[in-house]
Design a protein around this nucleic acid. Structure first.
Lengths: 295, 295
DNA sequence: CTGCGGTGATGCGCGTTGGTTATCAGCGCT
DNA sequence: AGCGCTGATAACCAACGCGCATCACCGCAG
């Protein structure tokens, strides 16, 4: 009678790939598991959804009909999950702030204080998100607003207000040959191996590799998904990493030195929210930030 | 991530009853099973859906949001199942004919023949449905057309073409005191215990108890969900049963006699289809029947 | 105050489901 | 003829979902 939406997801994958083995890889399950679940779905519906003739897989008319509907259902469930979660958050008077690196600079404290002044019952939750998600939890509704370094992916889906503009520094091990320098030009940094954000970070990865300033591709020493992992890699001497001046202070620790790179454009930290989020609290919150001077 | 639609159905039941035990009864599961599934759903969504304060159950805002969406999703899945099934039936060139009692009278044979003459690749499937479903499978798309005795439930959802009009007879055990009679008046039948269709049969139950002709309520000997069960009850001497003259012949068997009830209005057998079913085959099929004389 | 009735949660045992790995069977291609 | 690819099947195992029995908690009547 009823169905597990997972089975519909399985079916959509097979229907799109028209290939059980590839679909199974995409779904991170084994091919036999997938075969059996599809067979079970067909048995439940008492309908053949796919024609398998040994070498090829094709949709039956019924399968084609289900494919469209299944996509709708999955999307509807996704939207439902988000809506329910939003309602719950709203009812519990919490604004979830996504962040990938420490924000510091007194920003969160100030934001919390000003929020309390206009909405005394509300409070702030901080949600740490790895660099894999360049929207810091906004995209999948794990956060309501987020502090992100520009550029943002999918700029049409987001709005933001810049809260800090800071020069970029190079952080290297204190044993590094450049460690004693007080400032650097980008020419001196260009060919150093750098620690990169994960591919999933999108354009931001390029920004922190300074691809806006270099001609060829950067030398990637290693990939780090969090600031702490990156600093650990720096201490281990794997390579350097570019970061903002403010973050250089926040993440200052023994074994690391940070040196300004004078001829590199600044980094911008922004408070970001979803363009389709029209909740009053969110609007009021960003209105607060709009009044701030860009430090 | 994904959810089993059964869990949503469980949740809707609890949200509507605001009472776990009653909801569990409605769902034909035990109360502990229901409690745990709801708890699991809440855990999956990381959201409290119901406030249980010992004595009462209430929806949280998140629960209210989910309730509306869950109903939509369940309805959407229901529609999807039907649509997929219809597409499959269409593609396999089959018209499924629902029936509750044998149709006989050469009707199915004639229908099959005429269908083959206009649509040579199509064939007929017969689907037996118990009296519990007065639409003979039309409502839940188990059949495409059906032979039903009037009156039909929810007449706006159905269209029909009468194919036979026959007097009603009384079938009783051959040991019954009336067994030797050649005909009866309804006054002689009115107070006999009769075998009834299940409550779920709707108005049809009343029709076969001749409530259109009697003043007080009928005496119900027992309930039978199929014609064979009814005849078995007749043979066992539990009571009489009203049936059409044609069916009296079809179900004639040792130990049973059928006697016309002269002053009872006739029964009408109709070919029924869904008013929202606009498939060409269905239209052509009923056009065929429209040309038949009402026997 | 105390016992009773009603309600949802919890512990336990059991069958089913969904997952894995290993292997088979059919077909195309060299 | 043999190899490679693909989906199905077999065998096994952990997790899930269910029912039964029971608990914990509250309101209420005596």
């Amino acid at each position: 009678m009823d169905v597990h939406l997972r089975d519909l997801r399985y079916f959509v994958a097979v229907a799109e790939e028209l290939h059980f083995t590839r679909a199974a890889e995409r779904l991170f399950v084994s091919q036999p598991a997938l075969s059996r679940q599809i067979a079970k779905l067909e048995a439940d519906l008492r309908v053949r959804l796919l024609d398998r003739d040994r070498r090829t897989v094709a949709l039956t008319p019924a399968g084609a009909a289900l494919l469209a509907e299944a996509r709708e259902l999955l999307a509807a469930w996704d939207a439902t999950r988000r809506a329910v979660s939003d309602v719950a958050v709203d009812a519990s008077s919490v604004v979830r702030i996504g962040m990938q690196t420490s924000v510091g600079r007194g920003i969160v404290e100030r934001l919390g204080g000003e929020l309390r002044s206009i909405r005394p019952t509300w409070r702030i939750d901080l949600v740490q998100v790895a660099w894999d998600d360049p929207t810091a939890g906004l995209a999948d509704h794990d956060s309501d607003v987020a502090f992100c370094w520009l550029p943002m992916p999918r700029p049409d889906d987001h709005r933001w207000e810049v809260v800090a503009v800071e020069p970029r520094c190079l952080a290297v091990s204190s044993h590094h040959e450049l460690a004693e320098r007080r400032s650097l030009s980008f020419a001196e940094v260009e060919h150093l191996p750098l620690i990169a954000l994960p591919e999933a970070a999108g354009e931001l990865r390029g920004f922190w590799l300074a691809e806006d300033a270099r001609s060829g591709p950067a030398t990637v020493a290693t990939v780090a998904a969090t600031a702490d992992a990156a600093m650990e890699a720096v201490i281990a001497g794997l390579g350097g990493v570019l970061l903002s001046e403010g973050n250089a202070q926040l993440y200052d620790r023994p074994g690391v030195v940070s040196i300004p790179v004078t001829d590199l454009g600044p980094a911008q930290l922004a408070l970001v929210w979803r363009s389709d989020d029209h909740r009053d609290v969110i609007r009021e919150l960003v209105d607060l930030v709009r009044g701030w001077p860009v430090g």
